[in-house]
Design a binder for these strands. Structure first.
Lengths: 184, 184, 184, 184
DNA sequence: AATGAATGAGATTTCATTCAT
DNA sequence: AATGAATGAAATCTCATTCAT
């Protein structure tokens, strides 16, 4: 029998942190391996290339976000309550797992081209939510809601707004409700 | 009167296009020079480093956006009219110079850290606009407005929504007005 | 009585095929193991190193050729008949085991340096055969005969001449006989 | 203006020598650059890859050999004299430029696959020479002649026969003439 | 006995940048 | 002024091999 993998998890953690801290391209294999306390070659046993590591990290964490949103919007209640649940879920994600949130935020545009078209994205969840309310503008409303989430989060990340994000739950929820046309 | 340098403009155009197409880090000096039909060394006559080129491109176009917004929000009229003007200006900018817009979208997070803190940003214009209306929430409202702009633009760029962007002028304006609490 | 190792033969076959197809250096342990459907470490149970595997493959087949030639040249008959027998044996061997031949052709120069000086080579058999006939030129005649074999075989392998090799038995025998000065 | 290339010729010389001495695959870019007294990166200004360097060296030197043979076989005289001229040319090449000869000899099989099919090879020159004499067997006779050349040269290279190669001119010529059926 | 994990050394190649003409 | 040549450093990745289970 062979020994269990020992380097895989540390490599993922190190990569996530360094990618977020210094950027995907500014982070080298060497640095990741050093932080994970293993050899550079170990990485290539688990992922065929650096890009594959980035993509797999992204997909994994994106799936987390999608699952989180799916759960939130499928909670009982009317549209307003679901929007509140989605807002809360997203904002909490940043507070709980800031690395995951920032990673997804940072690399999404770079990754975009290499993702399959049918990949389920956070946008899709919001669009489905909005579609029941206003089918004609669902895409636009979902985009607006997502834009509000992300930009507020970006403000907190870059220090324009004080954290934690969760403190803006009520306010952001209210903004999204207004966008949708359901002011409190 | 020295004649203007010949290589500068082609280098900027080539850089912008390649940065947007392949990413900032994936684009090398060599490739930029080849597209601009000049030597690699020529680039160093005009900018001291690749990073300086990136930053200067970014700052230049940022200044353009800021100027555009400044002009829009200083137009006569009430808040709603100013918001409409700002929306129109931003969306038109993308349609007129999609490369510029995409470039700013792509590199803003990477660049952010290296910009001086007192740099006037598009956010600042929007915040000033909002401050007159609702001082307590100005930052948040400006963030929401900006988020809506950017996300809708991103949707068009990545094909989730059909272009051109300007066609969403009325809808986006309406969404921002709702966010601000001034529904049509 | 220990049962024979299971992985040895598949490893040899896989190595031979891949060495011939992609070259000795371009073929990695990993690829060999994958083709042989066993682990990389298994190879090291049977040979102490990759180089040992190459050498053993080479020596094994060299021994086969030598034995074949030895048998052929010790058959009853005069020189012409022995030359015919040797020719037939060599050409048939290559028809039967084209991979082996190509392998020998590819690596012989690289291997040459690492073989012991007293290693009995096909050349030696031919030289002994020739020595009885023309002691002064034995080495040269043997070289010429071997050169004819190898080059004709190479032509077949690389498609300059249609196969199978055996069809050239009479012609090649005649050529070698002429070289030796015993034209039919 | 730019400076003239300084590293190109030394790189070619170093590569040729090291490829012949240690083998193509056992010779690294680093070693080549060190022998040429320039940086490793300099190589990539002149050839896009190591393989391209190998191929270009091969093609260049192969063209030399072909030109040499072409000149030899186009000399005035009957077939026997042309064969003598070709033999002399080939054997002298080894004595004059042993590196070129050995390089072509060593890498030809590794290179074979990547060469265009219509590439003119030494074989072709000999075949044309033989075709006038015996059209039916031209390919076979040319192969035999080439095999004799190469194997005798290989014997000298590996010390089975004492050098220089030119001393075997008469003997080798005689052998080839016998093969062709024109014994002295 | 046999495996997948892990590794250190080294491979080739690319980078932004400087040099020499 | 402008170029192609050259470079040191670093990048990603592969290698044959050994380890631990």
């Amino acid at each position: 029998m062979s020994r269990p993998p020992r380097a895989r998890a540390p490599l993922k953690e190190a990569a996530l942190e360094l990618f977020v801290r210094h950027g995907v391209h500014a982070t080298g294999i060497r640095e990741i391996a050093r932080h994970a306390q293993c050899s550079e070659a170990a990485l290539y046993r688990h992922w065929p290339s650096k890009e594959a590591l980035i993509t797999s990290l992204f997909e994994e964490h994106l799936a987390e976000v999608v699952a989180l949103l799916d759960e939130a919007v499928s909670a009982p209640g009317d549209l307003a309550e679901r929007i509140r649940a989605a807002t809360t879920a997203v904002l909490r994600l940043y507070d709980d797992q800031p690395l995951v949130f920032r990673f997804v935020l940072l690399v999404r545009y770079e990754i975009a081209a290499s993702l399959p078209d049918d990949r389920r994205m956070p946008q899709d969840v919001l669009e489905e939510l909005m579609r029941a309310h206003d089918p004609d503008q669902a895409v636009l409303l979902a985009a607006a809601a997502m834009g509000i989430f992300l930009q507020v989060a970006a403000h907190v990340i870059f220090g324009r707004l004080p954290g934690p994000l969760e403190r803006y739950c009520d306010q952001v929820t209210e903004l999204v409700l207004r966008v949708v046309g359901l002011p409190g």
